[in-house]
Design a protein around this nucleic acid. Structure first.
Lengths: 331, 331
DNA sequence: ATGAAAGCGCTAACAA
DNA sequence: TTGTTAGCGCTTTCAT
């Protein structure tokens, strides 16, 4: 049977209150003698505190919910890792959930997390629908948004990336390299990331006096398969193009692959530029030129921000991280 | 303020016991009238049950700890995803932890999970030291081992992969393809996976009457960097070789890269064969021939097995999954 | 320097 | 058909 503070109290001939205070270092005045005795007994009996019982009274679970679209997308493990490292450092644990960009799954998870009494939630809002804004508004748990922005009430902070300038810099680079007919295979335009990147794309073209051709823009998912399908759609559409800017690296990598399979050389025939800088982008041939997003840092900062709100009651702020263009060989 | 069953009871003019029974569907005999009234009040007031309070009495948290070396290694997101999908389906949540193959971090996490009263733990034992076997033995929580085997007392089940035959098949394939001097860049031989794969490697050579040359075996970590370093060590060692069998795909991918950078052609000059079949292996050039491990299934089965033990008190068994050779272009 | 007692929100016998 | 009561293991206020 598991040992409780009651057992310890009995063995040490003190009250449970005393044991609790000692175990939590809460009362300076308790004599060294009893303190040591109790501590010893606890150790000898391999005492494991029941955190649920504690949480029930302290109303603090020291756990954080991490809600992501899909850990299988290589952008997210980095982010999750950053989150976990900071959480661990601060004595928090993480419950992690995959939403598959499905609004229903998301709100079901959010509710479960609420029931588990997590202290806060870090959320990459699912791409789908508006439905869950409502359920988010109901949530009484401190929420930190990461990666994707959205307008909800009780947001305690945001960790975003400057997608506009990231895309702008990328497309501008393509233009500088003399590419004029730049296709854009984007992720779902229901996400702010995709919208902002589209903004950067169009602005860069405008600024260079290039007319925007909507036939060059293809909207799909942030998934590998869309890299293949999107490229094929583009190819079949018969519009002329000399470069592809991709919504993320997963798309870019598979665009390159599809192009190569058709005997189209990258970058000699077509240039390809990605977004994210997942580690894989450096391992393919040709190595992918891409926009680096600080995924690890995003996770890390999100947890930091959340804990600041939780423990120090700091007003939640918005952190906007910078991207930078990583030049390799695909352009 | 958050609403409790007490509040609901008051509003509905019934006892908390009745409310509890209704909310949990535990008592058939309660009249439809009160049942509906209570349910309505709960809904109207957006009642969220406090699972900690419940767990405290039921001694069941419906959460599972998932302890991995590093989610950043692309083998593990798949596994984690499989675990999460099954857990979600069964009404469990997952707390996830990265150990970095560090025994201390591992046992610290294990203890935290114990304190959180998780119902069970799924563990990929960290590569390091023997130190934590002891702390594992102390653990009173049902444990399911995944990927790496180890001898501990209260194991409730294992999900392993037949590493021996996986490696055997791979090396045998190399031999059939007329490669005779096969180097092996392996992960840490403190893991059972590496040991078993080494066994398969040597057996395959033996069976073909090829003498084992220990100068061709290089031990390091299951990490990308070791793919680079290991390949360089091999190259600098001046032993002759015509193929490299790699401890995992991360190593293999970087071996190929290193080889290519030196102007060595894969597979014409040197063949490279990997292990894991991470999605990345199909995206590089040349696409990697590798041993497929069913990572998703491993995670899925581990959770299934654990829940079977938990909910149905089934005796824990060992599941041994099969690998299969995926032939692509690097051999 | 220590203890008594109340209570966190819930469930589960058992009674009525 | 419903309610009473006693905890689950812990913290915390207030006495002593």
């Amino acid at each position: 049977m598991k040992i409780t503070i009651k057992d310890i109290a009995k063995k040490a001939n003190v009250s449970t209150a005393t044991v609790s205070k000692i175990l939590n270092n809460k009362d300076e005045r308790i004599s060294k003698k009893t303190r040591e005795r109790v501590l010893l007994i606890a150790k000898e009996n391999n005492y494991i505190p029941n955190l649920m019982a504690r949480s029930l009274v302290t109303r603090k679970t020291n756990t954080i919910g991490l809600v992501l679209p899909d850990i299988t997308n290589p952008f997210f493990p980095e982010l999750a890792r950053g989150a976990e490292d900071k959480a661990n450092k601060e004595g928090y644990m993480i419950m992690y959930c995959n939403t598959d960009d499905d609004a229903e799954k998301e709100s079901s998870y959010l509710e479960m997390l609420a029931q588990k009494m997590v202290d806060g939630i870090i959320l990459t809002q699912s791409a789908n629908k508006e439905g869950n804004v409502e359920s988010l508004n109901k949530l009484k748990i401190p929420l930190v948004l990461i990666d994707r922005d959205i307008n909800v009430k009780n947001i305690k902070g945001k960790v975003l990336v400057d997608n506009f300038s990231g895309a702008y810099e990328a497309v501008d680079y393509l233009i500088k390299k003399e590419y004029k007919k730049i296709a854009y295979i984007t992720g779902p335009l229901s996400t702010t990331t995709a919208i902002e990147r589209l903004g950067g794309y169009t602005k860069a073209l405008e600024d260079s006096g290039i007319l925007i051709n909507f036939e060059l823009i293809f909207e799909g998912e942030y998934k590998a398969q869309w890299g293949i399908d999107g490229t094929n759609e583009l190819l079949n559409s018969k519009v002329e193009f000399d470069a592809i800017f991709c919504g993320n690296d997963l798309i870019a990598v598979n665009a390159i692959r599809t192009l190569k399979e058709k005997g189209i050389h990258v970058p000699n025939d077509i240039a390809v530029l990605g977004y994210d800088n997942i580690f894989l982008s450096d391992m393919i041939d040709p190595p992918l030129t891409t926009v680096n997003q600080p995924a690890y840092k995003m996770g890390y900062e999100a947890v930091k921000l959340l804990i600041d709100v939780l423990d120090n009651n700091k007003e939640g702020k918005t952190i906007k991280l910078k991207t930078n263009l990583v030049i390799r060989k695909s352009v």
